[in-house]
Amino acid sequence: MCKKYPTKNTAIEVLAEAERLNPGLWKQHSEFVALACKNIAEHCENLDSNTAYILGLLHDVGRRVGRVSERHTIAGYQYCMEQGWDKVAKICITHSFMIQDIHSAIGKWDVTKEEYALTESIINSVVYDDYDLLVQLSDALALPTGFCLLEKRFIDVACRYGINESTVARWKKTIEIKDYFEKKIKCPIYDLLPNVKKNTFV
């Protein structure tokens, strides 16, 4: 596999190490995000399901540094760049910004001025591709306990982080991404997510 990505086995080991450094349910969430990425990518001609799985698995790897908020994005980027995994590094940033604007963040900017400037520069300069969109969508389809409807994940995040002026716009953008992939795969996204109804409101 290209150096831009680790192998699947390496990615699994890296996530396990990150969870040892900072134990938490974020690891289980990442595993379900990875599975959602894989399942959807299998139905997209332009996406590789193995690559999609790896990107989903490591999108939150920056949480290895501890209990942090928005710092996990730049921490993940820096860690992956050190490994030479530039495609994964990109995802560590873009997964949190379905709206390509640093001011749309939902969490606290617990970073240095230099880290904030670097994050803003990356967000403003990168070109999103279908892998970025896929991880953004899959991140919104997965709880630590399994797959869920977008609406439940929206409320889950709002309860933990609160809401701001970008909240509804973020929800609308995520729904747009869901619609985009459903047109590509020609079936409801939820059909590809086992037991999704176990994590709904009904």
Rank of each mutant, 00 (worst) to 15 (best):
M1F: 14
C2N: 15
C2K: 15
K4G: 11
K4P: 03
Y5F: 15
T7C: 13
T7N: 08
K8Q: 15
T10V: 14
E13L: 14
V14K: 13
V14M: 15
L15Q: 00
E17N: 12
A18W: 11
R20Y: 10
N22Q: 11
N22D: 06
N22V: 07
P23K: 12
L25G: 11
W26D: 00
K27V: 06
K27D: 03
Q28L: 14
S30H: 06
E31N: 07
F32K: 02
F32A: 06
V33P: 04
L35K: 14
I40S: 00
A41F: 09
A41L: 12
E42P: 04
H43W: 07
C44R: 05
C44A: 06
E45R: 13
N46I: 08
L47M: 14
D48W: 11
T51W: 10
Y53M: 01
Y53S: 01
Y53N: 00
Y53H: 10
L55Q: 09
L55P: 07
L57D: 05
L58N: 01
D60W: 07
V61D: 00
G62E: 03
R67N: 14
R71L: 13
R71A: 12
R71H: 13
R71N: 08
I74T: 02
G76H: 07
Q78A: 08
Q78F: 05
Q78S: 09
Y79D: 04
C80H: 04
Q83N: 07
W85P: 02
V88Y: 10
A89W: 11
I91T: 15
I93W: 14
H95D: 06
I99L: 15
I99H: 08
Q100T: 13
H103F: 10
I106M: 14
K108R: 13
W109G: 00
W109Y: 14
V111M: 15
V111E: 10
T112H: 08
E115R: 09
E115T: 02
E115C: 00
E115V: 08
Y116H: 14
T119Y: 07
T119E: 11
E120T: 10
E120P: 03
S121T: 13
S121M: 09
I122Q: 03
V126K: 00
V127N: 12
Y128W: 08
D130R: 03
D132C: 15
L134I: 10
V135F: 06
S138L: 06
D139L: 01
D139F: 05
A140L: 05
A142I: 03
A142K: 05
A142F: 02
T145R: 05
T145S: 11
G146W: 02
F147V: 03
F147A: 04
L149I: 01
L149E: 10
F154Q: 00
F154T: 05
V157M: 06
C159Q: 10
Y161W: 11
N164Q: 05
N164M: 04
N164D: 10
E165D: 12
S166P: 00
R170E: 04
K173L: 01
E176W: 03
D179C: 04
D179G: 01
D179K: 12
Y180E: 01
F181P: 01
F181R: 02
F181M: 00
K183C: 06
K183M: 08
K184M: 12
K186P: 00
C187T: 12
C187E: 12
C187S: 11
P188Q: 01
I189H: 02
Y190G: 03
Y190F: 07
D191W: 02
L192R: 03
L192V: 07
P194N: 04
P194K: 02
N195M: 06
V196N: 02
K198D: 09
N199C: 05
F201R: 02
V202Y: 07
